[in-house]
Amino acid sequence: MRANFYLADEKQQVALGGLLGQFLKQGLVFLEGDLGSGKTTFTRGLIRELGHQGAVKSPTYTLVEPYVFDGRCVYHFDLYRLADPEELEMIGIRDYFDEDALCLVEWPQKGQGFLPSPDLCLHFSLSERQGRDLQVEALSDAGKAALQQLQKAQVV
């Protein structure tokens, strides 16, 4: 199941991320796209919707940024600087994919072979119209349910 969204500006990226945060509380989300395509901006909206009050930064140098609030764990990964997917084993990547956690992975192709299948795959690209185009593919029952709810609620 797939859906396409047009996000005219940063405000709409954050808003759609927040909407998804209402519908997907746990699981695995891949965020794909070129540098500057909106992956971290979207993630900021999602994490803030779940209750985080502070800054949401890209974990480019640390590989993972944990957010723990209200008894929930959200892990934001950025694999851009990963030299070899086997490095994920060294940081104990499998331990993060707890059934109650929400894991958001930017540049998932860099971890190929070491990451489980995602619930949702989001592909961001620069739009011909100025903003961003977002294609969302649901790859699990939980992902399909979240995408259906997102389509119904989407007002951007």
Rank of each mutant, 00 (worst) to 15 (best):
R2M: 09
K25A: 14
K152R: 12
A83I: 07
F5M: 08
V105H: 02
L115F: 08
G33T: 01
D78E: 04
T41N: 01
Y67R: 08
R94M: 08
A101H: 11
V155L: 12
L147F: 07
A145R: 14
A83F: 01
F77A: 05
I91C: 07
L122E: 05
R94H: 13
D141E: 15
Q135Y: 01
Q148E: 15
D34Y: 00
Y96N: 06
N4A: 13
F114L: 14
E137T: 13
G27S: 09
C103K: 02
Q13L: 14
V29P: 03
F5W: 09
Q53S: 15
I93E: 04
S58H: 00
G38F: 03
C103S: 13
N4L: 12
F77I: 07
D100Y: 08
Y67G: 11
L28G: 02
V156K: 01
A138P: 03
A146T: 08
Q130N: 14
G36V: 03
H52N: 12
R48P: 02
G45P: 01
L88V: 11
Q13V: 09
R48E: 14
E137L: 08
D84T: 11
V156T: 13
S127M: 05
Q53N: 12
Q112L: 12
E137A: 13
Q22I: 04
L88R: 05
L104G: 03
F30Y: 15
D119G: 09
G38W: 02
E10F: 00
Q22N: 11
L150Q: 05
R2K: 12
Q13K: 10
A83D: 12
V56E: 03
V136L: 08
L120F: 10
L50C: 10
V29L: 09
L82N: 02
L50H: 10
E87F: 05
E65M: 12
D98Q: 12
G113W: 09
I47H: 02
P108H: 07
D70H: 07
D9K: 02
D98F: 06
W107C: 01
Q13H: 06
H123I: 10
S140Y: 07
G18A: 06
H123M: 08
E65F: 13
G27D: 08
L24E: 09
V64P: 01
V14S: 00
D70L: 06
S127I: 06
Q135W: 06
H52S: 13
L7C: 13
L46S: 06
L46K: 05
F23Q: 08
E65T: 07
L134W: 03
E137F: 02
L104M: 07
P59L: 05
E106M: 04
R94Y: 11
A55P: 02
Q151C: 14
R48H: 15
Q12R: 10
L31R: 00
E32G: 01
A138F: 05
A142L: 14
S58C: 01
R72A: 13
A146R: 04
T60D: 01
D100S: 13
Q22M: 11
Q148S: 14
G92P: 03
Q53K: 15
G21P: 04
L28F: 14
Q148R: 14
R94C: 05
L63V: 15
